[in-house]
Each structure stands twice: as C-alpha cells, then as structure tokens.
Amino acid sequence: MVRRVAAEFLIRELASLGENALVLAHRTASDPNPSVAERGNFALKQLNQNDAAASKSAAQPVTGTSHRVNTVSLNPPAIPDPD
C-alpha cells in the first residue's frame, strides 16, 4: 500500500522531481507488485514523452523573433525639481 501511494506521488510530481524522477520511475517499474510496477512504467512513458517533446522543440530553429537584449542603465533618469 505504501509503495502504491509513493508511485502515485511519483506520477503527480514528475516535473518537480528533476533528475531523481528517472531513478525513482525505474525503481518503481521494477517493483514486484504489478500495480506499483504499472505506475512506474507509466511514469517512464511520461518522462520519455517529455524528453522527446523537449528534444523536438530544442531542435527547431527559432524564426521571426527578435533577440533583443534588455539592458539596464547605470545612470538613472534625472528627476526634475518641483520648483
């Protein structure tokens, strides 16, 4: 029961677990309890889909956008005297 709840948490928090998510998903997928292993396999599929989507979007060139860099002025604008 505890491992099943942990597997549910893993699925729910995949995005926030970072690199640990893959390790936990593999461990969960190899669990002897079929329902826990099923959740681990689901988590692995989600991670693979996220990686594929990230790779695809990173490989596409960015076109038609401005790459303007915001700069910060070290000299603040002058404040007029209230006189």
Rank of each mutant, 00 (worst) to 15 (best):
M1T: 02
R4Q: 01
A7R: 00
F9V: 07
I11L: 15
E13P: 01
L14V: 05
L14A: 03
A15V: 08
S16I: 09
L17R: 08
L17A: 02
L17M: 14
E19F: 04
E19R: 11
N20I: 06
N20V: 07
A21L: 03
A21Q: 02
A21H: 02
V23Y: 06
V23N: 03
L24C: 08
A25L: 08
R27N: 13
A29S: 15
S30Y: 04
D31P: 10
P32H: 12
P32F: 08
P34S: 14
S35A: 13
A37Y: 10
R39H: 05
G40P: 07
G40C: 06
N41A: 07
N41I: 01
N41Y: 05
F42T: 12
A43H: 10
L44Y: 09
K45T: 11
Q46D: 05
Q46P: 04
Q49Y: 12
Q49L: 15
N50A: 15
N50Y: 08
N50P: 01
A52T: 12
A53K: 09
A53F: 10
A53N: 06
S55G: 11
S55Q: 06
S57Y: 05
A58G: 06
A58R: 13
T65W: 09
R68G: 12
N70D: 03
N70C: 06
S73W: 02
P77M: 04
A78N: 06
A78K: 06
P80K: 11
P82N: 08
